[in-house]
């Protein structure tokens, strides 16, 4: 994988986006194994009902991991300088997540050509689950 060319990139450019499969209970069980986060809020319907919550919901970091995939499908991972999100809504079972990124700034950071990306992970109705940004080195 080669880095995108700085001169060919413009503010407003969109990265190739993707939409995930619907988040299922199996997704959350797999994520619990992979992440080590076995909190019952994500896995145990009896537990969440006993605590007055309708159903289990996704780990916030699952959506951030999807945004990470969006980045590493565009650049080699070692080009990512920083990556952050705010968690703005809970992802429910059955929702597909639409991951998008837009170039919002071209900059030089520590003598290196970079772009700042605005990241969004939202459901298909456009409700943002996570908003964030990343700085990525380009060629």
């Amino acid at each position: 994988m080669t880095k995108p060319n700085y001169d060919a990139l413009n503010v407003g450019d969109m990265l190739p986006s993707f939409t995930t499969e619907p988040v299922s209970r199996l997704t959350l069980a797999l994520y619990a194994t992979g992440s080590g986060d076995h909190h019952p809020l994500h896995l145990d319907q009896d537990y969440v009902r006993a605590n007055g919550i309708g159903d289990v919901f996704a780990h916030g970091m699952l959506g951030m991991a999807y945004l990470g995939r969006l980045l590493t499908q565009w650049v080699p991972q070692e080009a990512i300088r920083s990556f952050g999100v705010r968690f703005t809504a809970i992802t429910q079972i059955g929702e597909r997540l639409v991951c998008t990124a837009k170039v919002v700034e071209k900059l030089e950071q520590d003598g290196e050509k970079c772009v700042r990306l605005e990241l969004t992970c939202a459901n298909e109705q456009g409700e943002a689950k996570h908003k964030g940004d990343a700085v990525v080195a380009v060629g």
Binding site: T20, L30, Y31, G34, A65, Y66, R69
Partner: peptide
């Protein structure tokens, strides 16, 4: 663990 994380997040690389 990384294998399960990749499976959970739909990673294909």
């Amino acid at each position: 663990q990384l294998k399960w994380f990749a499976k959970a997040t739909g990673e294909t690389n």
